[in-house]
Amino acid sequence: MAPNTKRVFYVNNVSAPIYLEMLAKRPDIHVDKLVNDSPDAEAEPILAQAHAYQIGSSRQELAMRFQGYAPLLQRCPNLLVLSTNGAGFDTVSLKDATEAGVAVVNQAGGNKEGVAEHVMAMMLTLSKRIVMSDHAMRSGATYDRRDFMGDDVQGRTIGIIGLGHVGSRVAELCQGLFQMRVLAYDPYLSAETIAARKAEKVATLEELLAQSDYVSINCPHTAETRGMMGAAQFEKMQRHAYFITTARGGIHDEAALEAALRQKHLAGAGLDVWEDEPPPSDHPLLHFDNVLVSPHTAGITRQSRHNIARIAAEQMIDILDGKKPPRLLNPEVWPVYRERFGRILGFTPEA
């Protein structure tokens, strides 16, 4: 192994082979692989030496002992960065990482096309009642095709919660393809920024819900957004409206959504994310004909995985070369991080 080697590890898998291919071109970077059930005798030496961890983004797929919380960080005295495999960072505690002087980065934007297209697919499929008519035709029972009368999306209103990479692309597609009115609720963006992203800023979530024919959740899962969509919020939506989420489970209250659908307060829902993934087969939301479901696959396209892996590798190389990453999720850690980086790797990152 070359002197001054930077040690990177991952657990189970990376997003795509290009990640490993790009790091392999650097003789000063060594990559180790662990799996969920790696014995401690194998894992501990790797953890003790690691400078960087390319961490999975799914809580259900990554063993708790390898998730980015204080217990793991205490086993990694030389760890400088936690880099998630996707835009989400559910497997990492920003608080614990910051207290340990560890930078956290994600790969936001890498899967925006895949997720935005999934939103559009759900919106169109629900509006045209394609799943319901498909099931009726296959059932062998008699039916009246007029029972599956749907709606055009042209000129209607979509409300987007969170106008980041994915939300902005959804806005662009809706406005450009179907000349829809696009509302956005994002308290962290100015009206000017939102307008530049093809949307109209609303001051409150309630205002967006009351005016939208479709509501799309595209914000991250944080302490602030957890439970954002509950019974009171579904009550504010129009009865002909559809609820679509490709963000993260936990942002919407599944029991409240079930109640709203059962009471016919909503026209239907498109759900790609769940509190527990995959959801159990007897989950109540799986038994509505007007609910379109997928198992958190919106961002799992070949192109999205390749993009995320490439971005992750580029960002990891820059970090280990001492550059400040463009997707730093806890910027307040930087002064302590720089000191630790210099002490551990022998040179100090840029200010």
Rank of each mutant, 00 (worst) to 15 (best):
G155K: 02
I160A: 15
H135E: 15
A24K: 13
H296P: 13
G68K: 06
L173S: 10
G56F: 12
M22E: 12
P220M: 02
A199L: 07
R75G: 00
A298Q: 03
L285S: 03
K25H: 03
V81H: 10
F66Q: 08
E350A: 10
E207N: 06
T5Y: 01
T98S: 11
M180P: 03
L80R: 05
R145P: 05
P326E: 13
M316R: 03
S127Q: 08
Q49W: 12
R343N: 06
K95T: 14
G249W: 06
T245E: 12
R248T: 09
L23W: 00
A24G: 07
W274R: 10
V202Q: 07
G155F: 01
V119R: 02
I29L: 05
I160H: 01
M122R: 01
A259L: 10
S57E: 07
K25E: 14
H165L: 09
I317F: 00
N85P: 00
M316T: 08
R26D: 14
E99N: 10
W274D: 14
G68D: 04
Y242T: 05
A2R: 15
N307G: 11
V8A: 03
N12V: 11
H296G: 09
P27Q: 15
N106Q: 03
S281N: 07
G230R: 10
L23N: 00
Q175Y: 01
L80Q: 04
R340P: 04
M1I: 12
P279Y: 09
T84L: 12
D318S: 13
D321E: 10
T246M: 14
H51M: 00
V11L: 13
H30C: 11
V293G: 11
L34P: 07
S58H: 09
L257T: 12
R305P: 04
A184M: 06
A231H: 02
T5G: 09
R226C: 14
T246Q: 15
D289P: 10
P220F: 08
M123W: 07
E254H: 13
M132Y: 07
Y69W: 15
A87N: 11
G86A: 12
A267F: 04
Y69V: 07
